[in-house]
Amino acid sequence: MKELWELYLCFARIGAVTFGGGYAMLPILERELVIKRHWVTIDELMDYFAVGQCTPGIIAVNVSTFIGDKRKGAAGALAATLGFITIPIILITIIALCLRSFADLQVVKNAFAGIRVCVCVLILNAVTRLWKKSIFDVKTGLIFAVIFALTVFSGSLPITVSPAILVVAAAVIGIAFGPAGDSSTGNKTEGASK
């Protein structure tokens, strides 16, 4: 029980200082878990990230679950993940409630209109960063083009395809037409981030 509590507290602290999640938390995890506590080795940590980013869901949650599970099984996994999300939930709750009461102020509207421009740039940067590792031949280019078009023009198409279906279809296409046994094309340890 003491160890579970320790796991929870440790991940609560990590959750409170990680901005952005994903790979942003790697140096923090390395310091806290590999160097200070010796809970995992750096190789294990890299494995968790590699698999955590190509399994469904939030990368930070996936990695927390792996580490918690390694320490204390399923209960440890729960403790670590709950720890990780505790502080963000509290902070976002406070911010969201405040924003709701101030949303009609002109100054808040102006601020968010400016921030939305910044968000565009952040997304553009994420896309260009992921582009090189993801789109490198005709087939991957085609997958990108078709899914992008279906999603952007979903409002003006007769049928709307759910992103869930697109994701499943992309996986099936990858399995059917992906490279046969050539591991050089897919380096999943460096694929997506965030």
């Binding site: 565009c120 997304i123 990108f144 697109l166 399995i175």
Partner: peptide, 23 residues
């Protein structure tokens, strides 16, 4: 798994890019 990701990675970029268009 690797082959599935050959398809999933460009799909993921496409979905994020499309979300960017919405913003």
């Amino acid at each position: 798994v690797e082959r599935a990701f050959y398809g999933l990675r460009p799909a993921s970029v496409a979905l994020i890019a499309a979300a960017g268009i919405n913003v």
